[in-house]
């Protein structure tokens, strides 16, 4: 069936386009579930991207590179935590400032590394399995970070809904005063959540600089951090939907490019608007139903907590 041959390549391209969004989205989801809104995703991704790239170029060790990217992202997030959690600065303003800072810092760090190629992250190849037509390359032919992104989503999903720690995290995000009065350390839990978010953003950035387009160039995230923020709303704060949403957000761009290449007349700007309009619509749909929004959206998001005692 020649008519369906395009599906496999489209899916393969979608996976690459979606993976950085999955990482950044799932990290920010945990951050937001704890009741914190960190708008600095773009900045954290960039710092992760450059740190990962530098580590890979200098050491040649990609495992270390991803680790370093995660660490760099969480250091950025820690900074955000100090300001918003300990010093109670406004989260929206601090997040925006963090992005300003991250864009500059990553450019400064990467100055010597512009225009350097690096080998892309290895892809899995299992003789026999990867060669299966259609599903082989999709399921058995990805790089390690793609598999990791699925594992992280599964782990986060399990953590949030099946573990006590996950319950506590959600409680902190839904009612910090109540969680505090039971005796949980709201600030401590939020620090962990924020830093997890940073680490995931860092890995998402490293996916760009090591696998998606293996190079470093200033501002190479090109707004993906902001898309990740939209994605979480679109996913109504559910980990599984973050995954699906990331593939849809990535997919729209890919399909649009394919349609153009096939000679179909599509106004690209109008199509580019679609994900954002769709997010607004989803938000309206879930918000309309009070019980649903209460179930998934963290009630304390963006609110400052100070123990009254």
């Amino acid at each position: 069936m020649a008519g369906f041959d395009w599906i496999v390549p489209v899916i393969l391209t979608m996976i690459t386009a979606a993976t950085p969004l999955v990482f950044a989205g799932i990290g920010e989801l945990i951050t937001e579930k704890s009741g914190v809104l960190n708008l600095g995703v773009e900045g954290m991704m960039l710092v992760g991207a450059v740190t990962g790239f530098i580590t890979a170029t200098v050491t040649g060790n990609y495992f270390l590179a991803v680790l370093a990217a995660a660490f760099a992202g969480s250091v950025m997030a820690f900074l955000f935590g100090v300001l918003t959690l300990s010093l109670m600065a406004n989260q929206v303003a601090t997040g925006l400032a963090l992005t300003l800072f991250g864009v500059g810092l990553s450019a400064l760090m990467g100055q010597e590394f512009v225009g350097m190629p690096v080998d892309p992250l290895d892809k899995l190849y299992i003789s026999g399995l990867t060669d299966i037509p259609y599903i082989g390359p999709i399921i058995f032919g990805q790089d390690g970070l793609v598999y990791l992104s699925f594992a992280v989503v599964a782990a986060v999903s399990w953590f949030l809904y099946k573990t006590k720690a996950g319950l506590i995290l959600r409680a902190v995000g839904d009612s910090h005063d109540a969680a505090h009065s039971i005796g949980y350390s709201v600030i401590g839990i939020r620090y962990l959540a924020v830093m997890f978010g940073g680490a995931m953003s860092g890995i998402g950035g490293a996916y760009l600089s090591l696998a998606y387009t293996p190079m470093w160039a200033e501002n190479m995230t090109a707004g993906r951090g902001w898309i990740a923020l939209a994605l979480i709303v679109f996913a109504t704060w559910k980990p599984g939907l973050v995954l699906i949403g990331a593939y849809m957000f990535g997919g729209i761009t890919i399909l649009q490019l394919h349609a153009q290449a096939a000679g179909l007349d599509v106004p690209s700007q109008v199509l580019s608007m679609l994900p954002y309009v769709a997010t607004v619509l989803v938000l309206v749909l879930i918000s309309k139903d009070q019980s649903r929004i209460r179930k998934h959206a963290p009630a304390c998001i963006g609110k400052i907590f100070h123990p009254a005692a």
């Binding site: 391209t13 690459t16 998606y212 890919i254």
Partner: peptide, 13 residues
């Protein structure tokens, strides 16, 4: 870079 790469892939496909 990402979108440029995607476009290249789409054209090749």
């Amino acid at each position: 870079p990402g979108k440029e790469a995607d476009a290249a892939k789409a054209l090749i496909d």
